[in-house]
Every structure is written in C-alpha cells, then in structure tokens.
C-alpha cells in the first residue's frame, strides 16, 4: 500500500515536473462519469431484520484490504454504547438504538455510503475524481484526487472520510458498493455475508416495490416510509424501519438533489460562456468609451491651457 502510494507520488511528481500533461490526456478535460442507469442496483436495508452481528463490518474490511482482525472479536457489543461513524478503516458500521416497544430487540442500523442517484460528491469534486457507475455505485478514484475534501463538505450523509494523519497520498475513503466485486459478478461483501439478509441486493426499482410490499404486509411492523427513495433525489441504498428515521441516526433531508442548486448556479454563470464573455465585452466597451472621454477631456484641458 505504502509502496504503491510512494510510487504514484513519485510518478506524479515526475509528471508534474516534466510537464508531460499528455500522460493524463485520456483523463484530461473529461468530466466525471455520472451514469443514472435504469436498472441500477441498490440495497434494501431492513433494520427490523438486522441483529447487529457486525459480520458486514468484517466482510467489508476483508473485501477492501483493511486488517479486519478476528471475526470473534466482533461479538463485543459494547461498541454499541457509542454511536459510530464510518472511518478510514471501516467503510461501514452498525449502530444500535434501544427499542421501547421491546427492549430485548434493539434496532440495529448499518451505515455506509448511500450511493445517491444525484451524488453531491460527484458534482462537487474539483477534478472529477468521484464517479457514479452503471451499477449505481459512487466510486472514488485515487489517481485524480487532490485531497481538497470538498466531497466531505458536500455529502449530506457525512460519509466520505479523509486520512488526516497521512502526509503523502492521503485518501478519501468510503464505501464503493464493492464496484470491483460487481465487475466480477459478485455481490457486495456485506450483502453476501449478512446472515439474516437484512441487506437485500437487487435492481433499485424492484427493491422499492419489495419495500412497499413489506410495508403493506406488515403495517404494524414498519412505518410507511422508504428512506432513500426520495431523499436528496433518491439513493441506491434504501432503509425500512419500525420508527422514524431520525431516531435511528439517519439525517432528515429534503427531496431535492443536493447538487441541484449549486449546479444550476454554476451553469447559469457559465451558460456557454455567454455571461463571462458578455461581461468582458461590456467592460471593454466601457473602457474604450471612458478612455475616449478622458482623452477628449485632456485635449480640452490642453487647449484651455
């Protein structure tokens, strides 16, 4: 890991030094991919099925080359005493919330990147290092990232994390929906291991139908709301729960895509470069006119003198 980062660091320095921008010509001037595929995948998290075994945390670490430790150590339930957030060495965590209806059946909620349909991070990233792929995954690209952390500011779910302690090649880290595994035709590691299939993986459209069915069949078990169906324009990961989602650690958000306003401002300012060019021409005209005036004035003054 270190070796690679050092090498890429050196090569990048070399690239910068020689100014051989052609190396990145294929990336050059290319916008980030932001595919909103019709049959993009998703995961339906049924919090009523999650028992907080934390196998997903273990599997996730293994799938991403992070030292996962012994799975036996995941039995420790004292970690639930504090609410945890995804970090640089854990792209997903499970939090537990007490359940007043039955204290013996606490509510466990897995947290990870929601893989928005209209991701703010993709819109925000200065170099387009975050892309949304055909399977719905929002994936970070180490070759482009400059470490500005704007994605962290933009993310409404507060998901991306940054290796603040690393001096060279610090990374933005977050769940990548196991994009590499997807390409090999495998399920995301967390979905594959979940012993209760609290995580159902499938086409997002079907998952929404499934969620509706579940709610209809068990109206006393679920509140009639699918979290992620509409939040910030929809997310690939969807949640069902027995009580309101703010009480189980999911933020209350509106249904407008997070990057909507900023992108429309951005595109307004830069609509085919018309406004800047217009401003430029206007200023040029002003400059010319005022110069003429000034010259005339000076000439007059000279005449006067």
């Amino acid at each position: 890991m270190k070796e690679i980062s050092r090498r890429s660091f050196l090569t990048s320095i070399g690239a910068a030094a020689t100014g051989s921008l052609a190396i990145s010509a294929n990336q050059a001037l290319s916008q980030p991919t932001n595919i909103l595929s019709e049959d993009r995948r998703g995961v339906l998290v049924d919090t009523s099925n999650c028992v907080g075994c934390r196998s997903c945390e273990w599997a996730c670490k293994n799938a991403h080359g992070i030292d996962a430790g012994d799975i036996e150590s995941y039995k420790d339930r004292s970690v639930f005493n504090n609410m945890r957030r995804p970090g640089i060495d854990s792209y997903t965590v499970v939090n537990e919330f007490s359940n007043e209806k039955n204290p013996l059946l606490p509510i466990d909620v897995k947290v990870q990147c929601m893989h928005c349909d209209k991701p703010a991070c993709v819109s925000a990233c200065i170099v387009g290092a975050i892309n949304k792929h055909e399977d719905g995954s929002v994936v970070w690209d180490t070759d482009k990232c400059i470490g500005c952390r704007y994605c962290m500011v933009a993310c409404q779910f507060q998901i991306p994390v940054f290796e603040f302690e690393k001096a060279i090649q610090p990374e933005i880290r977050k769940c990548d929906f196991c994009y590499e595994r997807f390409k090999k035709g495998k399920l995301p590691a967390c979905v594959e291991i979940c012993p209760l299939e609290a995580l159902t993986y499938g086409p997002r459209n079907e998952l929404i139908k499934l969620a509706r069915q579940k709610i209809k069949r068990n109206p006393e078990k679920y509140i009639n709301y699918i979290y992620g169906e509409k939040e910030v324009g929809g997310t690939s990961w969807l949640y069902l729960a027995s009580r309101d989602f703010q009480s189980i650690g999911l933020p209350k958000l509106n249904n407008k895509p997070a990057p909507g306003v900023s992108e429309s401002i951005q595109h307004g300012i830069f609509a085919y470069f018309v406004p800047p060019v217009a401003l430029y021409s206007w200023l040029g005209a002003m400059m010319w006119i005022t110069k003429r005036k000034e010259e005339v004035k000076q000439e007059k003054e000279i005449d006067y003198v």
Partner: peptide, 13 residues
C-alpha cells in the same frame, strides 16, 4: 443469495 425473486429471503437468511 444472488437471485431473481427477491420477495423471499434466501435459505441462509
């Protein structure tokens, strides 16, 4: 687990 019909949980679940 990877299957078409998602209406029922898989055997493991």
């Amino acid at each position: 687990r990877k299957r078409e019909d998602l209406s029922k949980p898989d055997l493991n679940a």
